[in-house]
Simulated assay, not measured.
Amino acid sequence: MATETSLGMDLDDPVTQHMRTECARLPVHLTAAEALAAIRENPPAGRVVYFYVVDEEDRLLGVVPTRRLLMSALDRKVGEMMIHPATCIPSTATVFDACEFFILYRLLAFPVVDAENRLLGVVDVELYTDELADLDRREASDDLFQLIGVKLQASQQESSFAGFQNRFPWLIANIAGGIMAAVLSGFFQAELEKVVALALFIPVVLALAESVSIQSVSLSLQRLHGRQPTLEAIFRKLQVEGGTGLFLGIASAACIAATAMVWLGQWKVALCLFGGISGGVTFAAVIGALIPNVLRYLQREPQVASGPIALAATDMMTLTMYFLLARWLFA
């Protein structure tokens, strides 16, 4: 998805389109005195935060902060005072990648280098502050709507029928999920009639799983902005999210099962709740992370489709595990 800011910057833009090509270079062989003299003779354009140390072929070797250069002994070599290796942004990076560098490393500027480590330019934080604030507002609103199957632009339609056309198709996933949930309940009607308490806890079992599923979808969408996932990255993410879901499921299930035990005094109901919630929440975390990543990997838009599909799949699997465990326990 290409996200554009109010100033026309696209998160998928190559960072090279927004860098400054004029940056403060210092040859590695200079002393501090020679470097200061060269700077006075040819003042660098714009605000200078860091000086970039390069070799004869303009390959980046390190970075010298302005304060360090000014405070160093005049006979000290630039190569001795530089910070090495320098944190660089590759020329293949996008604007989104550059924003992540500012957030992660909290520096005021980053050099941009090519595949051979030649210095191409500098990305300055001032170029991004206004855009980041605007993106934060836009994306937070857009993702909130898209998780429930609505695009923010579509939600602002003045025509009632146009709004219906844009919003109804993705509700079909929820309708299908609800119908299948009713069918599932019919298959396990004997268990529900035998132990009415099982039906009492269905809302909380589904609510916990759905909440975790939407959390996983939301986190995955945030990480996918401007990125194309690999199969290895997807598998690794599913492992982490599955572990997180398991911990969340056990903690939530323990609370609900303890409540059921104190309230009803039926250990089989408590065990059924513990197993159903633990399994349902674990599956919800995995499916919530899987669907956005798979859709993006297949070159499809994950923002609108992920939420409804994840919720429907979560409801189906959670109820199936809950009812199967009940059938086994109360056989």
Rank of each mutant, 00 (worst) to 15 (best):
R40G: 00
I256S: 02
E4W: 04
R227V: 13
I202D: 03
D142H: 11
V269G: 06
L108E: 14
L171A: 08
A260P: 07
F330E: 00
C99V: 13
L61E: 10
M19W: 08
D12V: 06
R47T: 14
A312L: 02
R118F: 04
A35C: 03
E193N: 14
E210L: 15
T87E: 07
R327S: 14
S216Q: 11
V240S: 10
I256Y: 06
F330C: 01
E232Y: 06
G243M: 11
G121F: 02
C23E: 11
V123M: 11
P292Y: 01
A33S: 14
R327K: 15
N174I: 14
L198M: 12
A253H: 08
C99E: 08
T282M: 15
G275P: 04
D75Q: 12
V15K: 03
P27I: 10
Q146I: 02
G149D: 06
T21Q: 14
W263K: 09
R25W: 02
L311D: 09
S155A: 14
L184A: 02
L11N: 10
T259W: 15
A258Q: 09
I83R: 15
M82W: 03
F188K: 07
V262S: 12
A313R: 02
S218E: 00
M321T: 09
H84G: 04
M316E: 01
D13K: 01
V262I: 15
L144E: 01
N174K: 07
P14T: 07
F101K: 13
G245A: 07
L119M: 04
V49F: 12
E100D: 14
M81S: 05
D315Y: 03
T66F: 07
L61A: 08
P27L: 11
V212T: 15
W263M: 06
D134A: 09
Q153I: 12
R137E: 15
T16I: 14
Q266T: 05
A326H: 03
W267L: 14
S278D: 05
E301Y: 04
L132V: 15
G276R: 10
L147Y: 01
G186K: 05
S218T: 13
A73T: 04
F323W: 09
E139N: 13
F168C: 05
P302E: 15
V78S: 02
M1W: 01
L74G: 00
Q189D: 13
G279I: 03
H18F: 07
Q165Y: 08
P308V: 02
L219I: 12
H225A: 11
V217G: 10
G79S: 14
L224K: 09
P302S: 10
S91D: 13
L298M: 14
I309W: 04
